[in-house]
Design a protein around this nucleic acid. Structure first.
Lengths: 358, 358
DNA sequence: ATGAAAGCGCTAACAG
DNA sequence: CTGTTAGCGCTTTCAT
């Protein structure tokens, strides 16, 4: 049984050491105004000498911030990703962006998992809030636009960020530029000389599915290329994409390139292409969305749209902290551009008889 | 500026609702004895009805636990892994084991990064402790046996676990069974019919390097096989392993199988084998250590020793919580067996003229 | 510009 | 077995 531990050096020690009141020390810690420079210096010297660091528990108890930001992720999906060990690094990228940004401001990021589908999601969230009293919450898909969660957080008066959402409303909307990313991918293929570029869309439940399709359509239209018979739909799963790719291959206009709306679907397309004797990228160019680590290790490594999850999460943290500090924060969605990582799965199309010449 | 938030339902509300004193509620929350079953029930009913969840900040202030466990990782290495996006999932596996186990007991896991090489590592750790007041700390290599950290934690009276360490001393030592794992890998190859099994060791700075070599030696000896000219050493880096594998290939006894002490070194060996025209596993069987996701996606997928990081971290959390609760905890190192994932990189050796027949 | 007082939600130590 | 009291370390009032 460990001994009852107490803070070794408290604000009281600092106050005594500097010969000022607790209040003055508190003011210095919180960078509040109305402290003479010399006082401030004296206090800071004491703080440094004593190695004083405020207890966040006490700070929270005193009625101020908790310096805690909760990153809410879907339990089922996150655990499955961890268990599968397929290299999905969504959480890592969130930590990379979120933790480091938190650390810069003296905050901590705590990852919490909640059941999306559960009807006690409300209870789970409230429990986390009651226990942790976080200063902010970062929502990720599929929670970002959950009205229950959104309403609850708003009612509790907690700042929160919605990653992957463009909707106005309470909380900050932060999204990757899905449409722009799809355009970039399409333009890349067009520049390589492709004219029949297929697209495997994601499910309609996800708004971003539509954005990605829109980007592809826009690029195709700009290049005066037809989209007819070049669009198929999957549900982000490997199996669904095999069917979708199959439909594309067997369709009226065999594509020379395919863009898949996520990695799993791109891998399925790659597999199917192989089975049909198509060599990638010689017979078929392939572009993937998400750029999880795995697409770098398949053969050939896939050209992919990189999701800047770390950057978006970092921004989310900054917004939350800025709002805490009473600073002005933008009320429009924050859109972060995506990048295209060009690898070995895209190349100019092979010359063939079907190349139309107008 | 968000409004000053307060706990919506506190222990006081529960006490009033149940018509008992604060203390009784506290006792129920903490499962302390000396509460009549009927009282307990009444209090629990109120807790459920009001949706009460204790504030960990307040609990900590009251002088009890903080319900926080810090997982200390090396900053440089962790950030590099996140940035590289090579699929390294050490942190994820820690969270899988650590977070879930924490959650079962009402604890939270907070990941903290500190600079190993920095001389202010002491200050960093003390700051984290002062701010968070964690109930426990989980150390990972290369911190596990850092005397400064060990001493500091002991002095602070904080329970801590040392992952990847077998040393006695303050804190719980938890390790994977490196020697056993190496034996398993070697035995697997011997069972396949290999007799000339090479081993690429890790650097001496890591104790586990020695354990792994010992396991290989033991298995070889048990099968009456010679180790002569079959041991090479690297430093866990890709480059070092190319040299090591090269030495093995060019040595007196060309191995028909090689065990590399980590994934990077296995990949280097694979690459070199390819360059020399050896087909894996036809001409050379290959076993890797660590089993990061990447080895599943190379061709052929590598047979590998799986590091049960999640299981070990889960155990670490359990030990810390048990000690907190005043329960008896083992004082001997906790060794978790490793598993061998058999994939396509190992096969029986090809018949060749050099097969000795005694 | 500084200080003194009160209280945050909870638990430990003591009473009954 | 149960209730009362006194803090924990900090931040808010409100004085000065």
């Amino acid at each position: 049984m460990p001994p009852r531990r107490r803070q070794s050096v408290t604000i009281r020690h600092v106050a005594a050491d500097a010969g000022v009141s607790l209040q003055t020390v508190s003011r210095v810690i919180n960078k509040e105004p109305n402290v003479r420079p010399e006082m401030m210096e004296r206090v800071q010297a004491s703080i440094a000498r004593l190695g004083y660091v405020p207890s966040i528990a006490a700070q929270r108890m005193g009625g101020s911030r908790s310096y805690l930001i909760v990153a809410l992720n879907d339990r089922e999906r996150t655990i499955a990703d961890w268990r599968n060990r397929q290299g999905t690094d969504w959480v890592d990228q969130m930590m990379l962006g979120g933790m480091l940004t938190c650390a810069e401001h003296g905050y901590r990021l705590i990852v919490e998992l909640v059941d999306t589908h559960s009807d006690h999601i409300e209870r789970e969230l409230l429990a986390a809030i009651a226990a942790l009293q976080p200063d902010g919450v970062i929502l990720t898909p599929p929670h970002s636009e959950n009205p229950l969660i959104n309403g609850l957080l708003e009612a509790q008066g907690i700042s929160f960020a919605r990653i992957g959402s463009l909707k106005p409303g309470p909380g900050f909307a932060l999204s990757l530029d899905d449409e722009g990313a799809a355009r970039q991918a399409t333009d890349h293929l067009i520049a390589l000389g492709h004219r029949r570029i297929g697209f495997i869309a994601g499910p309609d439940e996800y708004e971003l599915s539509g954005w990605r399709v829109a980007g592809w359509r826009a690029s195709m239209a700009a290049a005066e290329l037809a989209c007819e018979s070049l669009l198929a739909q999957g549900d982000f799963s490997f199996a669904s994409a095999r069917a979708a790719a199959s439909a594309l291959f067997d369709g009226d206009v065999a594509p020379t390139a395919i863009i898949a709306s996520n990695d799993q679907m791109a891998l399925a397309t790659l597999e199917l292409a192989r089975e049909r004797g198509f060599s990638v990228p010689r017979d078929l160019s392939l572009v993937s969305f998400d750029d999880t680590p795995i697409v770098r290790f398949v053969h050939p490594p896939l050209t992919a749209v990189v999701q800047p999850i770390a950057a978006v999460t970092a921004r989310a943290v900054e917004l939350i902290i800025a709002e805490q500090a009473g600073q002005d924060v933008p009320s429009v969605p924050v859109i972060t551009p995506a990048q295209l990582a060009i690898r070995a799965s895209t190349a100019p199309p092979r010359e063939d008889k079907r190349t139309d010449m107008r």
